[in-house]
Structures are given as C-alpha cells and as structure tokens.
Design a protein around this nucleic acid. Structure first.
Lengths: 232, 232
DNA sequence: CGGGTACTTGACAATGGTCAAGTGTGGTGG
DNA sequence: CCACCACACTTGACCATTGTCAAGTACCCG
C-alpha cells in the first residue's frame, strides 16, 4: 500500500514517516460492480482513495433521475469534504466496476492533517480544485444545451488522449447521459444528428471527431472536468 | 478591522497575535454598486471577506445569460478556492450594492495558513461546506423543475427568518431568476401560478407562505444553500 | 420630471423529456 | 456450450416545460 500512497497527488511531498502513519490508518476494501460505497445523507466516517476501479458520485431525485457529479478513478480521493465539514456525505457513491479502495477514518486522518502543514495544504489544493470543477459543472448544466455539453465532453475525452481524433468512450451512453444531465434517448439523438451533419462518426463507443472546430464552437470554450473559465 | 476579523467564522479560535498578523496583511477596499470585483479566468491574487454589502458570484454564457453560484454577504469569504489551487478565479464577482471588502493577498495568506493548523482546519471546513453547497446547487438545477427550485428558495428564506410565514425577498426577482437558473418571465409566471393556487400570496417582494406543506412537497426536501441531502 | 430598469402578461417556438416498441449483446446459470 | 434474461441502445410519436419576443405598466433614482 505504501508504494501506492506515495504516488497519490494528495500525499505528494510527505516524508516517509508521515506516509507510514497514513498507511497505518488506511484500510483496504473491495467493492463489487454496482455496490454502494456510501449514500447521500449518511453519516461520514472517513473518505476513500481508489487503487483500482472507478466510483460514480451522484445525486438522486425522488423520481429516480440521477445526476453524476464525478467519476473517480485511480488516485482520486472522494468523500473528503464530509470529513472536514463534519457530518454527512452530500451524495451517493457506487462502484462502476470491481474496485479496490483505501478507506481513511475521519478522526485519525483529521488528526494527521492538523499536525502536518504539507498534508493540510495538499488537501486545501484538492478541495479548491474540486470547487472549480463544480463551478464548471454548474456552467455546463445551466448555461449550455445538450449538444454543447456533449461537444464539451467529446473534446474533454479527446484532450485526455492527447488530442486524438478517434476516441473511445470509457462509460456507457446511459451513464454519459447522467453525466450530461440528460437521458439516453437524447444522447442517442444528438449523436445521430452530429453524425448526419458530418461533425463526427459514431460506431458503438468509438467516435471519430471529424470537425473539431464545429465541436469547439458548440462547446463554447468551456471544457468539462477542468476549471472552465479562462479569459473570454 | 480586528474586532471584525475576530468574529469571522473562518478566523474563529485563533489567538490574538495570529489575528493581528491576519489583520496586518488585510486591505480594505470599497466597491460601488455594480462594480466588478474580479472576472472569470482572471489571475487570482487573493481573496475577499465582506464587512458590508453583498457580492454576486456568477458564471456568464457567451450569450450573456448568467447563473449565480452564490451571494456572499457579511463575514462570508469568497475567492478562496483560487488562492489554494493556484491560478485563476473560476467565476465573476460583482458588488450588488456599495460594499466594503477586506482583501487578503494570496502569498501572505497561504504563508499564514501553512504555519497555523487552526487556520488551515478552518479553511478546510469552509471549502468543504462550500463543496456541499455546490452539490446541492447541482441537484437543484439538474433534478428539479423551476417550481421546485422556487419553493426551495422560499423555504430557505423563511427558515433563515426562523420559519416566518411572511418573508421579504432581499434580492430582485430578476436576480432570483439567475439564482434559480431561469429567467424573470418564468419566475413571474410560477409565482403567479402558486398565488392562484392559494399556496402563497405575493405583494412585490413580500411573500406570505400560506401552504408550507405544498411548498415542501414541491421542493422535495432539498433546500438551497445548505447541504441538501439528508437521509431520504 | 425623465429615463432606465423591474416586473408582468401574452403569443409562440423549441428544447428535451416521456412513453412505447424493437434490436442487439454480454453474462450467467443450467 | 447454449439459452435466456437483463440491460444498453435506438427510433418514433407526442407533449410539457420553459425560453424568446414583444408590449405595456409601474417604479425608483437622479
């Protein structure tokens, strides 16, 4: 576990003995595909860092509609906010696939943080970045229509692959719909329309970006999971 | 300024000498109604704490549509996220009225935070609470229709006034529309409809909640600026 | 007193959600 | 190893919510 933890950005720059203490309070847990990690409103007793697998963080409406806030993977902590503001998880977390998570109990971790300025600053940086991502998400959901959000997402995936024109979605289109704040039918239709217009080519989860320019116009500059904003 | 700072929640629990240092790096600035405090994407050189007045934090679409993320008032810091994740403000900030802000330059404040665990923990708590609020905002915008959001807002204002049935909006309906992710026309119509149905009475900015039960049904439990969530 | 803004109301349009039906596919258990 | 089932995906018809455009009134500030 130590060799994993020392590469987690949240723990960057920490001396070996401190990493040891962190490893000392961490507990690994395995979750099956579809298994719930925690639920909205549940008392928060700690947070998690994935070693393997991916976790969907989402809100649920009473009617069962779901809005994905984040998909957390390798080395991406989640549930930390609940640890420092005392109390309850603000959303649901569910494993998208078999996942191995390291769980850190809140009281012990808060204690370590209080006595380690580097760890505290790392955590402040993490929460701050997350806050910016949320501002970007709100922007997407409130100020853009579905084609714009979809275009943003495609560009985001392409950029993650160093700007490749041929991309492969790593989530189902149903899940993508819940990320974009819409439903599978609408995703299907919008992808179809873009394909008809020659902007993209779709073959299952494989999508080729033909006219990146047009996508960038639709996305209006704001990208999905990074800060968004930028002088405009 | 000291007597103001010592009551700011962010600075609670700090010893007098530390408060003195914080006061030492703080600079007061006055903003006129409508004046810009900072802009989306601008390099962040510090953050602000209002002593007087209110500041609107918002995102802007290229077409000029605006989504309000927060309205910050007395003792509510804003712009802190940019300080700890380095870089740029993720949204616009504009004074709603004549405001007096204390500005804290990023480098000096980060330095104080690094050497003061209590301040660091307070800041972690603040960012965490903010994160939960964002999760609530996303929930509102993505999972609820306008009547639901409006009902949430009315209940929020009422609760802030200790559950009073007669409330007074402290923002214009146009601004309220931008908080709710809609437009003034729609706010007008929905208020009208609720009044017709006998759920509320509207007289300018004064609104009487007649059937709180109905509003709570519409709002589906989630309230606006607090964590939302809760076991359901 | 004048001008700009806030607010309201109406007619209309469009985005996108609902419901329904049908196809394909992967995983599991017999 | 195969059959079946659940689920992902697609497409069509329909409709609800809400945004756009336009016009008119009221009101606040200078």
């Amino acid at each position: 576990m130590l060799s994993f933890l020392e590469n987690v950005p949240l723990f960057k720059g920490l001396p070996a003995d401190q990493l040891g203490r962190i490893a000392g309070i961490g507990v690994s847990r395995v979750y099956r595909r579809g298994e719930t990690v925690f639920s909205d409103g549940e008392a928060a007793d700690g947070f998690y860092v994935p070693m393997r697998g991916r976790i969907k963080i989402f809100k649920l409406s009473p009617e069962g509609k779901e809005q994905v806030l984040h998909i957390m993977g390798f080395q991406e902590p989640f549930g930390e906010a609940a640890v420092f503001s005392g109390g309850r998880f603000p959303a649901h977390a569910q494993a998208l696939e078999e996942s191995l998570l390291i769980f850190f109990p809140a009281p012990a971790f808060v204690d370590l943080t209080r006595h380690d300025p580097t760890l505290a600053m790392n955590m402040l940086a993490l929460l701050s970045r997350r806050l910016k991502q949320f501002a970007g998400l709100v922007e997407q959901l409130s100020l853009k229509e579905v084609p714009g959000r979809l275009a943003s997402y495609l560009i985001y995936v392409s950029d993650r692959a160093h700007g490749a024109a041929l991309i492969e979605l790593d989530i189902s289109k149903t899940l993508l719909a819940n990320v974009l704040g819409t439903i599978p039918e609408t995703v299907s239709r919008v992808l179809g329309k873009m394909a008809t217009e020659g902007i993209i080519e779709v073959e299952g989860r494989r999508i080729r970006l033909i006219e990146r320019k047009k996508l960038e116009e639709l996305s209006q500059g704001a990208s999905f999971y990074d800060e968004g904003g930028g002088a405009r």
